[in-house]
């Protein structure tokens, strides 16, 4: 699984506005890959996950309760949208991606295709 960066992105024209790059952890084990992404401030219905061919796109909009007439004095999170794109490798089964989203943390599980699972080869000694 590799990440697509701005320079390899093809749909720039469709979405020109700048976005936040959410921090992620990617952990691989024998059965698949687990991805955690920090998306604080995103309600469940504003999270968009796309898997198209071998491309995984995470897009999410931040919604904060902002009182009327508030003026921002200091901002570290200064954009309202997260976006990050990854390229999945062939052995991952993109049809079986499962996702959980709670307290602003997305957990994605992408299992490896059955043929890519490690198999123990038995050695016969004769």
């Amino acid at each position: 699984m590799t990440e697509k960066t701005d320079s390899t992105r093809t749909d720039d024209a469709a979405r020109p506005e700048p976005t936040l790059l959410p921090p992620v952890d990617v952990i691989e084990d024998a059965e698949g890959i687990t991805l955690y992404a920090d998306l604080p401030g995103v309600p469940k219905d504003k999270l968009n996950l796309h898997v198209e061919a071998d491309t995984l796109t995470i897009e999410a909009d931040i919604q904060l309760e902002i009182p009327a007439g508030m003026e921002s004095t200091y901002a570290e999170v200064s954009l309202p949208r997260y976006r990050r794109v990854f390229t999945l490798s062939k052995e991952l089964d993109s049809g079986k991606v499962s996702a959980e989203f709670a307290q602003g943390v997305l957990r994605l599980r992408i299992p490896k295709a059955a043929h890519a699972q490690p198999r123990k080869v038995e050695i016969r000694v004769e």
Binding site: D38, P40, G41, S72, Y74, E76
Partner: peptide
């Protein structure tokens, strides 16, 4: 956590981004 701070004439609003 990342923080945003804002204010209205009646209040001070602080947002701390603490996912997970």
């Amino acid at each position: 956590p990342a923080m945003n701070v804002g204010g209205t004439p009646q209040s001070v609003e602080i947002y701390a981004f603490v996912p997970g």
